[in-house]
């Protein structure tokens, strides 16, 4: 016999289900009076440094159908590549920036839309720079465990070409699933990031 390690097991994940909005975005579905605003729906304050951008897209299932009930969270560094919140020991991030946002997709069109700032570059664990990116976490009915992925920026070709994560993707044809194209047509820089849960265009999801 040997000594016991005494570790606990992580609580197993269960789907967020169809009614996740009740818990996360009650105002979005008309439950008012509990929270002044849905957490994560706040606009980025004026004081935050950085280029204002819009990130938009839709989530598709394996049949090409647009999900109308998904919930998306994003987590990102500030304009200097520093993370707000816990775990950042390289310096203080922009104090006006939370780095986190959450939005349900639109119940009719399935569109999601985040108004945020473009993050700076942060280092990989070996010190090499990672290209600017935004972490995405997707939950919904039928998704048994939250899906992690990253949005990379289409106008960062040089940084993307040497990014330590993107260059690890063996099937090079799948790299574009993580790269959002930029458009300035609306006057506001807009990146479109469609997420495909399954199929030929399946987004690269991460086990982190």
């Amino acid at each position: 016999m040997v000594q016991k390690l005494g570790r606990l097991k992580e609580s197993p994940s269960q789907t967020a289900g169809p009614y996740v909005h009740i818990g996360t975005n009650p105002n979005f579905i008309g439950i008012h009076g509990l929270y002044a605003a849905d957490l994560g729906s706040e606009t980025v304050p004026e004081a935050v440094r950085g280029e204002r951008i819009v990130v938009t897209g839709r989530v598709f299932d394996g049949g090409g159908n647009i999900l109308k009930d998904a919930l998306i969270e994003i987590w990102q560094a500030d304009a200097d590549g520093l993370y707000p919140g816990r775990g950042e020991h390289r310096g203080a991030a922009d104090p006006a920036f939370t780095g986190w946002a959450r939005q349900p997709v639109d119940g009719v069109t399935g569109d999601f839309r985040f108004e945020t700032i473009k993050p700076g570059s942060a280092p990989y664990f070996d010190g090499r720079p990672m290209a600017p990116h935004i972490t995405f976490w997707i939950v919904a009915r039928g998704i048994n465990i939250g899906l992690h992925t990253r949005l990379y920026f289409g106008d960062e070709e040089e940084a993307n070409a040497t990014d330590p994560v993107l260059t690890r993707i063996e099937h090079r044809g799948r790299v574009p699933t993580l790269i959002a194209a930029r458009s300035d047509d609306s006057g506001q820089p807009t990146y479109t990031f469609d997420i495909h849960l399954q199929g030929d265009k399946e987004t690269v999801f991460f086990d982190i």
């Binding site: 299932d61 394996g62 049949g63 987590w75 993370y83 390289r90 972490t135 990253r150 086990d207």
Partner: peptide, 16 residues
Amino acid sequence: LRSPQKALLSLGNTIS
């Protein structure tokens, strides 16, 4: 139809 079928990309934790 909502389950990824391809292998997840295993990634050591980064600052992100």
